[in-house]
Design a protein around this nucleic acid. Structure first.
Length: 213
DNA sequence: TTTCAGATGCTCT
DNA sequence: GAGCATCTGAAAA
């Protein structure tokens, strides 16, 4: 355990800021997932910002739908969606209400509850692979759409919350653009990660997939 | 070690 | 009906 770790939960005001301020600030914070079996704590090492209005890669870019309606709501809530027919991804809604922006939690380091995470991620060979990638992170933390729209900053016994954690020095934070995004904001660095951290998911250039014959 | 293609079903056009 | 904010296991080098 980290002796210098601050266990104060983050408040609503933390999330009620522009997404590009919140995203890098989430690095080094500790996400707590509480279940009946116990708690899993995860130090965030990689995140990605999604700004609904100007980001062509965002689910909310084309307006409100049944799926993304949580992103249009107040900050400090979780947004969970199902993708590729198999996986869930966990986001935290931020920015002023109505802005439809959020931060995708891409990777992290399990600090507490690794045994529970290993049960769900039995194929992981090393602990650093337990939450290396957004779908793996959601799997390790037992996150599914039942957690969509959960308030992470208020209420007793909430299943998800975020602690202050241990801050990351600014020179440790790296950022870069997403691939395959054009239009407004194409040069905006949407991804943020902790430099050299072994739990950061590997960069993969976007490659067109060949059709099956 | 890196690269590749298949799996899978929800969501929007 | 096409595309998707991905992962995994197998195979090559």
């Amino acid at each position: 355990m980290d002796k210098g770790m601050d266990r104060t939960p983050l408040g609503r005001e933390f999330f009620d800021r522009p997404v590009l301020e919140v995203a890098p600030d989430l690095l080094g914070r500790v996400l707590v997932r509480s279940t009946d079996e116990g708690a899993i704590e995860l130090r965030l090492t990689e995140v990605e910002a999604y700004a609904g209005e100007i980001d062509p890669g965002s689910h909310a870019y084309r307006g409100r739908t049944a799926r993304n309606s949580v992103m249009f709501g107040p900050p400090g809530h979780s947004y969970v969606y199902f993708t590729y027919g198999m996986w869930h991804c966990l986001n935290l809604v931020c920015g002023p209400e109505g802005k439809a922006s959020g931060v995708l939690l891409r990777a992290g380091e399990i600090r507490v509850g690794a045994e529970m995470a290993r049960k769900r991620r039995f194929s992981a060979r090393h602990d650093r692979e337990l939450a290396k990638g957004p779908a793996r992170l959601a799997t390790a933390l037992d996150v599914d759409r039942a957690l969509n729209g959960v308030d992470v900053v208020a209420g007793r016994r909430r299943p998800l919350s975020v602690l202050q954690g241990s801050p990351v020095a600014p020179d440790q934070v790296r950022s870069g653009p997403r691939t395959g995004v054009g239009g407004a904001g194409a040069h905006q660095p949407w991804r943020f990660w902790i430099d050299g951290d072994p739990t950061v998911s590997p960069y993969r250039a976007h490659a067109p997939r060949r059709r099956a014959t």
